[in-house]
Deep mutational scan, measured.
Amino acid sequence: MSIQHFRVALIPFFAAFCLPVFAHPETLVKVKDAEDQLGARVGYIELDLNSGKILESFRPEERFPMMSTFKVLLCGAVLSRVDAGQEQLGRRIHYSQNDLVEYSPVTEKHLTDGMTVRELCSAAITMSDNTAANLLLTTIGGPKELTAFLHNMGDHVTRLDRWEPELNEAIPNDERDTTMPAAMATTLRKLLTGELLTLASRQQLIDWMEADKVAGPLLRSALPAGWFIADKSGAGERGSRGIIAALGPDGKPSRIVVIYTTGSQATMDERNRQIAEIGASLIKHW
């Protein structure tokens, strides 16, 4: 067993022997301040990774656009098919120029040779490549099948209805392509620590998230040296922004954090800054 596999296998073990965790309302004060600064709703939840206990939450059962955070769930569904012998990570998928959609920095470079399922998941999570996500959605049967996968996990809230990039439209009061912070946090925890996926697939999923290259201005910008984070960000229309993450000190994750916002007129930089400040408060009061 590799060191990384050992780390993920012992996530519940280490967490069980940690000192009790206590909620700190100071972080919620910052979440509410972010709402004021952005002029928009902000949803927040913080779960203990081992027990699933909610440590703090704000608007945990209000719907927010998922945006690209759905790509972690998508690759979880792909990995479940791999575990069941219905898919192979090494299978190569070929596609054409007509398949390319807006923001496809990886797939646009491989029109000639195609990409493997493993490479597509890596591109979808680490670079948020939209064509990679659409190609992977095709392998599982489309958005409705991802929703069905989530329902089978016990998540009857999260739903995907459309493809990239239309799913980022974020129309107010439109339930399409949305989740709730509580539902997303619980589902992410199941994917990373539950028995739904094999140990190898859980490790692969967290490795992809740990290698995320496009979430630097968010929670990662607030992390002290030595902290662990595996995350996936999302951005959408109407001032929408979000991030889902597993993080913790001492090089291992111990909490799940989900943050979503929508309806702001603020710039992307300002949305990023507010999420980073929430992260800084979380870490300060850990």
Results as ranks from 00 to 15, higher is better:
24 H>D: 10
24 H>L: 09
24 H>E: 10
25 P>H: 15
25 P>L: 11
26 E>M: 14
28 L>Y: 10
28 L>R: 12
28 L>N: 07
29 V>R: 15
31 V>Y: 01
32 K>Y: 09
32 K>H: 15
34 A>I: 09
37 Q>L: 14
38 L>E: 06
38 L>N: 07
38 L>F: 09
39 G>W: 07
39 G>S: 13
41 R>T: 09
42 V>W: 08
42 V>C: 05
43 G>Q: 00
43 G>V: 03
44 Y>T: 01
44 Y>G: 01
45 I>E: 03
45 I>G: 04
46 E>I: 08
46 E>C: 05
46 E>T: 10
48 D>W: 01
48 D>Y: 02
50 N>L: 13
50 N>D: 13
54 I>C: 07
54 I>L: 12
55 L>G: 06
58 F>I: 07
59 R>A: 05
59 R>I: 04
59 R>G: 03
61 E>H: 15
61 E>S: 13
61 E>R: 13
61 E>N: 12
63 R>W: 05
63 R>D: 03
64 F>D: 02
64 F>G: 01
65 P>I: 04
65 P>L: 03
65 P>N: 04
66 M>I: 11
67 M>R: 01
67 M>N: 14
67 M>T: 12
68 S>L: 00
69 T>W: 00
69 T>F: 00
70 F>L: 06
70 F>M: 15
72 V>Y: 03
72 V>T: 09
72 V>K: 07
73 L>T: 08
73 L>F: 09
73 L>N: 04
74 L>C: 05
74 L>M: 09
75 C>E: 05
76 G>C: 07
77 A>K: 11
77 A>C: 14
78 V>F: 05
78 V>W: 00
79 L>A: 04
79 L>R: 00
80 S>A: 14
81 R>H: 10
81 R>P: 01
82 V>A: 11
83 D>I: 04
83 D>A: 06
85 G>F: 08
85 G>Y: 08
85 G>T: 07
86 Q>E: 14
86 Q>G: 15
87 E>P: 03
87 E>Y: 05
88 Q>P: 05
89 L>I: 09
89 L>Q: 06
90 G>H: 14
90 G>F: 12
90 G>A: 13
92 R>S: 09
92 R>P: 08
93 I>W: 01
94 H>S: 11
94 H>N: 10
95 Y>T: 02
95 Y>V: 08
95 Y>F: 13
95 Y>L: 08
97 Q>L: 14
98 N>H: 15
98 N>S: 14
99 D>T: 09
100 L>R: 05
101 V>C: 09
104 S>Y: 04
104 S>N: 07
104 S>T: 06
105 P>H: 06
105 P>C: 00
105 P>E: 06
106 V>R: 07
107 T>G: 04
109 K>A: 13
109 K>S: 13
111 L>N: 06
111 L>E: 08
111 L>W: 11
112 T>P: 14
112 T>E: 14
112 T>A: 15
112 T>D: 14
112 T>H: 14
113 D>T: 13
114 G>A: 05
114 G>V: 01
114 G>H: 05
115 M>V: 06
115 M>T: 04
115 M>G: 01
115 M>W: 00
116 T>D: 08
117 V>A: 04
120 L>H: 02
120 L>C: 05
120 L>A: 05
120 L>E: 01
121 C>V: 02
121 C>L: 05
122 S>R: 12
122 S>G: 14
122 S>T: 13
123 A>L: 02
124 A>D: 02
124 A>H: 00
125 I>K: 00
127 M>G: 06
127 M>S: 09
128 S>M: 00
128 S>G: 02
129 D>P: 01
129 D>N: 00
129 D>L: 00
132 A>H: 03
132 A>E: 02
133 A>D: 05
133 A>C: 05
134 N>P: 00
134 N>D: 05
134 N>K: 01
134 N>T: 04
136 L>H: 00
136 L>C: 04
137 L>S: 06
137 L>N: 04
140 I>E: 04
141 G>M: 06
141 G>T: 05
141 G>C: 05
142 G>P: 00
143 P>S: 06
143 P>K: 04
143 P>A: 07
143 P>H: 08
144 K>A: 12
147 T>W: 05
148 A>Y: 11
148 A>I: 15
149 F>G: 05
149 F>D: 06
149 F>T: 08
149 F>N: 06
150 L>S: 06
150 L>M: 13
152 N>I: 12
153 M>V: 11
154 G>W: 04
156 H>A: 12
156 H>F: 15
157 V>P: 03
157 V>S: 12
158 T>R: 02
159 R>G: 05
161 D>P: 00
161 D>A: 06
161 D>S: 07
162 R>E: 04
163 W>S: 09
163 W>N: 10
164 E>D: 05
165 P>R: 06
165 P>L: 09
165 P>W: 03
166 E>A: 13
166 E>Q: 13
167 L>M: 11
167 L>C: 14
168 N>I: 00
168 N>V: 05
169 E>W: 10
170 A>G: 13
170 A>H: 10
171 I>F: 15
171 I>M: 15
171 I>P: 09
171 I>E: 15
172 P>K: 12
172 P>D: 11
173 N>E: 12
173 N>I: 09
174 D>M: 02
174 D>L: 03
176 R>H: 08
176 R>A: 08
176 R>Y: 08
177 D>Y: 04
178 T>C: 06
179 T>I: 06
180 M>V: 13
180 M>Q: 14
180 M>K: 11
180 M>N: 15
181 P>V: 08
181 P>S: 04
182 A>R: 14
184 M>I: 11
184 M>E: 00
185 A>Y: 00
188 L>G: 04
189 R>T: 10
189 R>A: 13
190 K>W: 11
190 K>C: 15
190 K>R: 15
190 K>Q: 15
190 K>D: 15
191 L>Q: 00
192 L>K: 01
193 T>M: 15
193 T>C: 13
193 T>P: 02
194 G>I: 06
195 E>T: 13
196 L>N: 12
196 L>C: 15
197 L>W: 02
198 T>I: 06
199 L>T: 14
199 L>R: 13
200 A>K: 15
201 S>L: 07
201 S>P: 03
201 S>C: 08
202 R>H: 07
202 R>N: 07
203 Q>D: 10
203 Q>E: 10
204 Q>I: 13
205 L>D: 02
205 L>P: 01
205 L>Y: 01
205 L>S: 00
207 D>K: 14
208 W>P: 00
208 W>C: 03
209 M>A: 03
212 D>I: 05
212 D>R: 04
214 V>K: 06
214 V>Y: 06
215 A>L: 00
215 A>F: 04
217 P>I: 07
218 L>V: 04
220 R>V: 04
220 R>P: 04
220 R>D: 00
221 S>M: 10
221 S>T: 14
222 A>Y: 09
222 A>K: 14
223 L>D: 02
223 L>Q: 04
225 A>Y: 13
226 G>M: 07
226 G>W: 05
226 G>A: 09
227 W>E: 01
228 F>K: 08
229 I>K: 00
231 D>N: 05
233 S>Q: 02
234 G>A: 09
234 G>W: 00
236 G>I: 02
236 G>A: 10
236 G>R: 02
237 E>G: 14
238 R>I: 08
239 G>P: 02
241 R>V: 04
241 R>G: 06
242 G>Y: 01
243 I>P: 01
243 I>L: 12
243 I>H: 04
244 I>T: 08
244 I>K: 01
244 I>V: 15
244 I>N: 00
244 I>F: 04
245 A>D: 00
247 L>Q: 03
247 L>C: 07
247 L>M: 15
248 G>A: 04
249 P>N: 09
252 K>M: 13
252 K>T: 13
253 P>M: 15
254 S>F: 09
255 R>A: 04
255 R>Y: 03
256 I>Y: 04
256 I>C: 07
258 V>G: 07
259 I>A: 04
259 I>M: 09
259 I>F: 08
260 Y>R: 02
260 Y>Q: 03
261 T>A: 11
261 T>M: 15
261 T>W: 04
261 T>L: 15
262 T>S: 11
262 T>D: 07
262 T>I: 09
264 S>F: 05
264 S>N: 08
265 Q>R: 13
267 T>P: 13
268 M>E: 07
269 D>W: 10
269 D>Q: 12
272 N>H: 05
273 R>Y: 10
273 R>Q: 14
274 Q>T: 11
275 I>F: 15
276 A>S: 12
277 E>D: 10
277 E>A: 11
278 I>F: 01
278 I>D: 02
279 G>A: 10
279 G>V: 05
280 A>P: 02
282 L>V: 13
283 I>G: 03
283 I>Y: 12
284 K>L: 12
284 K>Q: 11
284 K>C: 08
286 W>F: 09
286 W>P: 02
